[in-house]
Every structure is written in structure tokens, then in C-alpha cells.
Design a protein around this nucleic acid. Structure first.
Lengths: 209, 209
DNA sequence: ATCATACTTGGCCTTGGGTCCTATATCACC
DNA sequence: GGTGATATAGGACCCAAGGCCAAGTATGAT
């Protein structure tokens, strides 16, 4: 569980290209894994590993764009760099709109590749860093009972206990109890802590298009 | 000062194209302004107006990409759609990395254009909407006295009045006064309101790359 | 039947936050 | 010398929140 360093996933059906890319990445100190088919990558990569993917646009069967779509539809955040031998503009636009870090034409130079990979890896690290807090908040929220969740929402909205009681059709005392337990479970000492965590958590929830 | 509806800025050195684009936009109910040179656009557009820009990539003198860079370096948020007669992939990537909404090849179909414009306008509206809250919060914070600002920071951090008093080397009573005035000026009824506004305000402050 | 969980409510006391009124001291500006 | 903004501070008082103790019900699983 020590930090294994970023991994670069290479997907290309031309093994000589995989080899060439691998050499460049190795020389820069990256660890990489090679795949010749999209399915092979999707089934064997580790979504929890930090790093990025370098995808060939044209693959036998499922292509690079589909891989990108598959990843995002499965909620996997994985920065992607595309490589292509003969791309066109609409495809480029589609890839970039899908969040690709870069879109490079073969033959790709070492510096070009490494620069793109560096950006992609950095993005992934930043993402994982801020993801931790959100994950923690999510985990805690999952432990709340239904009633406690309702109270949480009202508290974050800045409502008073008695107002919450009225809204939920119960007594002031009951709200105090739920509220106390909720704060306990959320690990929040003060309302300020609570609001910060919960709003930052809700922030980028409905993001992926 | 009533909402004038979104404006589409068209920049192309071919007047016949401007005319054609204008017809399409008119038919969809958009207001638009035409420019044949980049400088003309940069000097005469209204950064405060809601809408988007449709830029030809190749212009005499300053091109579309430079316009995009100029806008962002001046801190002007203005969603951009590029049009091009003969673009290449590196240019497309650069444009999209720069935040372009879309990158279309001439001849561009009416539906294609309108769809891109709709997305761009929507983005601009969303941006302006959330920008208002931040502006409001900034304005309010500017009205705080130095002491009130310090108290604000401590309150948002979830500290108790007496702790704040100790930190600032003053009495509990004094903090209560500052705090009360600060809440008043910030237009926050509760701590929850305050934390929400201030943290969201701080959130995207160091954003632009 | 028993146990766990969740939801409910009461009283009592302490602490914390907010408001009103009052008051002093400093500093800058006119 | 007066005026306004800022920071300071005390007392009285009210309301809100949280902790401690105790205890009721309902539901569902073992």
C-alpha cells in the first residue's frame, strides 16, 4: 500500500509502437502497462491506480473514443491522451470535449509525449487528492439514518432546531438528539465544519456530462 | 438594464459568410454583431454582455486563436466557437485546450452552428450567474473593517467567540460586537450561510491557468 | 421471545450566541 | 474643536444548542 508511483496504460494494436512508447516512458522513469485491445485494457487496468492512459484512436474492435466513453460512463476518472495516425477534426473535437488531456498525431516525439503524460498524471494526482475528502464525507453520510440525513440537510441550510422540528413534524427534543448523533457521525465539531465538508462534497457531484 | 438576451459576436473577414451566419442566428432569435477584423472585435465588444463569440480561425492580422488568448489574458470570460476552412489537428487541440466550446469546419450547417451556440450561451449564463454571488460576497467583504475581517476568518474556521477573543488578544464582549456587525455586513443570517458564501468565494479564486 | 436499530420525548443544567443600551479612547479629517 | 469611523468593554437579558439521565414505541432479524 505504499505509493507505487504513476502508471501509464498504453493501448495500441501495433506492438512495435507499444515498444517504442514504452522505451520513452521508461527513460523518464514511468511504470507502464501495455494492451493491444480495448477490452483487454478495460478488464485489466486498475481504476484505483494513479496515472493516465495513452490510447490509439483506431483499434480493432472498440476504438479509443469508446474506451474514453466507457471509462466515464463507469465513473472512472482516468486522464486520457489520444494517439492517431490519421485523425480528423471532428474526432479531435469529440475527444477533447470528452475531457482528453491531449490528442497527438503519430509519429509522436518523445518530448511531446512526456509533456502530455506529465500533465495527465498531475491532473490525476490532483483529482485523487481532493477526492479523498469527498470520499470520507460520503462514507460518513452513508452511516446516517434517514432521519439524521434529513436533519443534516436542514442544518446545512442554516435552519434552527425548532424550525426543523416543525418541518419534520416532530419535537424540538427529538431534533436535538438526531442532530447530536449526526454531528458525531459526520465528525464535525461545529456547524462550520459540517457546511464546508458537505457543500464541497455536493459541489462536483452532478458534474459529468 | 433589462436583460437584452444573449449576443453572438461574429468575427470573419469574409462578409458573405458573416451574412450567412447572421441569417441563421436571426432565424433562431439571436442578436448578433459582426466584425471583419480581430482588433475591431476586441475593441468594440461588450465584455459584460451575455453571449458567445464565433471566430474564424484565419483572419488577416490577428487570428482566432490569438483572440481567444487575448480574452483570457484580460480575464474576460467569453465562450468561443471556432470556424475554419482548413484547420489541422494541432490547432484544434490548442483551441480546445484553450477552452473553446466547439471547433467547426466550414461549410458549417445551421443545426451544427445553432447547437454549438446554444451550448456556449448556456455556459456563459451559468458562469455569470455564479459570478454574481461571488461578486456580491467580494463587495461585502470589502466593507468589513480589519478587525471584522479577522473575526470573519475565525468564525468561518468554526472557532468559538472566546477562542477568537484569546487569539486576537481582546475580550469576549468585543468579539461579539465585531461578529454581529460582520454578520450584518455579510448579509448572513446564520453561520451556515456565511460559510457557504465565503468558501464558495474562495474556491475558484486561484483558478485561471 | 429477544435483541438491535431507529425514532420518539421529557426534564435539567451549562454553555454559547445575539441584542439592547451605555460608555470610553483613538485617529483622521474638516 | 467638532464629527465620524473604529476598537474597546460592561451589564442585562433572551434564545439556541448541547450534554446527561431516563424512558417510551415500532420494526425487523435471529
Amino acid at each position: 500500500m505504499s505509493d507505487p508511483g504513476p502508471v501509464v496504460y498504453l493501448v495500441d494494436d501495433d506492438e512495435s509502437i507499444l515498444k517504442a512508447l514504452g522505451r520513452v516512458l521508461s527513460s523518464a522513469g514511468y511504470i507502464f502497462e501495455c494492451f493491444v485491445r480495448a477490452e483487454e485494457f478495460l478488464e485489466n487496468h486498475d481504476p484505483g491506480a494513479c496515472g493516465c492512459a495513452v490510447l490509439d484512436l483506431q483499434l480493432e474492435g472498440m476504438g479509443g473514443l469508446e474506451i474514453q466513453e466507457r471509462l466515464s460512463s463507469e465513473g472512472i476518472y482516468r486522464p486520457v491522451i489520444f494517439l492517431t495516425g490519421n485523425g480528423d477534426i471532428p474526432t479531435t473535437v469529440r475527444a477533447m470535449k470528452g475531457g482528453a488531456v491531449d490528442f497527438l498525431e503519430k509519429p509522436v516525439g518523445a518530448r511531446e509525449l512526456l509533456s502530455a503524460v506529465a500533465v495527465a498524471v498531475e491532473r490525476d494526482q490532483a483529482r485523487r487528492l481532493e477526492g479523498k475528502d469527498r470520499q470520507d464525507t460520503s462514507d460518513r453520510m452513508a452511516l446516517l439514518t434517514p432521519r439524521e440525513s434529513e436533519v443534516l440537510a436542514h442544518v446545512v441550510a442554516g435552519r434552527l432546531n425548532k424550525q426543523i422540528a416543525a418541518d419534520l413534524g416532530t419535537s424540538l427534543k427529538t431534533i436535538k438528539v438526531h442532530r447530536g448523533r449526526m454531528m458525531q457521525k459526520m465528525g464535525a465539531r461545529t456547524v462550520a465544519d459540517l457546511v464546508r465538508n458537505v457543500t464541497l462534497h455536493a459541489e462536483k457531484d452532478g458534474a459529468p456530462s
